[in-house]
Design a protein around this nucleic acid. Sequence first.
DNA 1: GGCCAGGACACCA
DNA 2: TGGTGTCATGGC
Length: 215
Amino acid sequence: MELTLFKLYLLMKNHLPTGHWWPAGSKLELIVGAILVQNTNWKNVEYSLANLKADTQFNRTKIIGLSLECLETLIRPSGFYKNKAKSILAITQWLDGFGEDYDAIARHYGDGLRRQLLALPGIGDETADVLMLYVFGQKAFISDKYAQRLLMKLGVADLKNYRETAKLIRLSEEFSVEDAKAFHGLIVDFGKEYLGRGGAWKPSFLDDKKLTLQR
DNA sequence: GGCCAGGACACCA
DNA sequence: TGGTGTCATGGC
């Protein structure tokens, strides 16, 4: 049976528990989490977020006030801490330049917002899309590893990297921003459950399903 | 004790 | 453009 992307989303929504997505108490906490989770288990990210919350309550001024060494220590549990600490400081300083007014940032950069995010250290294609979607409320498909594995299991061949996948996948008009957020959440929850490395199994509600990509 | 996780980036051909 | 090595911790 052939599926459109939106039908796949509805199917997953009906068959999987709805996750609370993205887990964060504030936009700044979400941004920091998005950096910390890069190639890292979320469990490890939680340790770092707890450390940061205890020290700064995710107050941007307090974060900026941390020394690089101190920040590195706080986020050490989530790995790659030197790169991530630099990135978090740079992004927080950038946000501070706008008084952490996210609407003002969106207005200021307009269509160039994603490009600006990519220009910040430690923000690549995937993290940029995460921020576009969850922080700035703009529709985006997050083509993380779980999404790529799921799509390949559904018969979409040859997904070599993020950009190639992103080029292939377009969220149709049927998707609202909230749908896009929920979709990514479902894919990650689903991925943790069924798409670990070597996990060749897929649940029965996806049996014999093939994904058709509209252009 | 080895493998892996919700990537980014520099460097190379 | 595309492939490869590096960055690093904690859980399983």
